[in-house]
C-alpha cells in the first residue's frame, strides 16, 4: 500500500494557477524542486566512532563545521546543530538510508528519523538571487562570507528555512516546512517581481 503513496507538489493545490517555475535565468528564477528523501540524524559529535559509523553507513562525511553542507553523488548532508544533520537523497531511497543508519548506530545514543514529508524545497538561481533573498533574510549573504558550501538556518520572510548555497552564479536551495511553503513561494514571487522584465 505505502509504495503507492507519492509526495505531491506543495503548489499542487493551486490548481495550476501558480507556476512551479517563476522568473527568468537572466535575473532570478525560482523552481520548485521535486520531493527528496530526507533523514534527520542526531548523534554525539564528540563520539568519533559513532561519526565514523554514520559516515560508513551514508558513504559521505558529516559536516562538523556549523553553517556548512557537504554533498557527494545523490546524497547531501546539511549541518543542523552540533548534534544534528539533515541528510537528503533521491526520493524513494530514504527508507534504505534510514535502515542502514539505524543498523550502524544500533545501541548508541543516536536517533534516525524519516522527515521526507516535512519540507518543500525551492531552487533560487540567477545573478540577482542574492538580492532577492536579502529582502527577507537578515543573514549576510555577501560572497566574502557566504559562498558555495555555506548554509544558514534562519528566517526568510519570518518563516524558518534551511538555506544553502549550491553554486557561485549564485544558486541557492531552501527547504521550508510544507505548511509555510505556499506562503513563502508567493512572497518570493512577489519580492522577485521588481527584478523581472514584463
Amino acid at each position: 500500500m505505502a509504495e503507492h503513496l507519492r509526495a505531491r507538489s506543495v503548489l499542487a493545490d493551486a490548481g495550476g494557477e501558480v507556476p512551479r517555475m517563476f522568473g527568468d535565468a537572466a535575473a532570478v528564477r525560482l523552481t520548485e524542486v521535486p520531493p527528496a528523501g530526507a533523514i534527520v540524524l542526531r548523534l554525539d559529535a564528540a563520539d568519533a566512532s559513532a561519526l565514523q559509523q554514520a559516515r560508513e553507513a551514508l558513504g559521505i562525511q558529516l559536516p562538523l563545521t556549523p553553517n556548512t553542507w557537504h554533498g557527494e553523488g545523490d546524497i547531501t548532508v546539511l549541518w543542523q546543530a552540533y548534534d544534528e544533520w539533515l541528510a537528503l537523497t533521491a526520493d524513494g531511497r530514504q527508507t534504505e538510508m534510514a535502515a542502514r543508519l539505524t543498523q550502524a548506530l544500533a545501541g548508541r545514543h543516536a536517533a534516525v528519523t524519516d522527515v521526507s514529508d516535512l519540507h518543500a524545497e525551492f531552487l533560487i538561481e540567477g545573478p540577482v538571487g542574492r538580492d532577492l533573498l536579502r529582502k527577507g533574510c537578515a543573514v549576510d549573504l555577501h560572497p566574502r562570507v557566504f559562498g558555495t558550501g555555506h548554509l544558514a538556518l534562519t528566517a526568510l520572510a519570518r518563516v524558518r528555512v534551511v538555506l544553502w548555497q549550491t553554486g557561485d552564479a549564485p544558486a541557492y536551495r531552501l527547504r521550508v516546512e510544507r505548511s509555510h511553503a505556499r506562503y513563502l513561494w508567493d512572497w518570493l514571487a512577489d519580492a522577485g517581481g521588481e527584478f523581472i522584465d514584463g
Binding site: 556549523p66 546543530a81 544558514a152 534562519t154
Partner: peptide, 10 residues
C-alpha cells in the same frame, strides 16, 4: 555559540 551573530528576531 554555534551559528554566529544573528538578529534577535531569530
Amino acid at each position: 555559540p554555534w551559528c554566529g551573530a544573528r538578529p534577535d528576531s531569530e
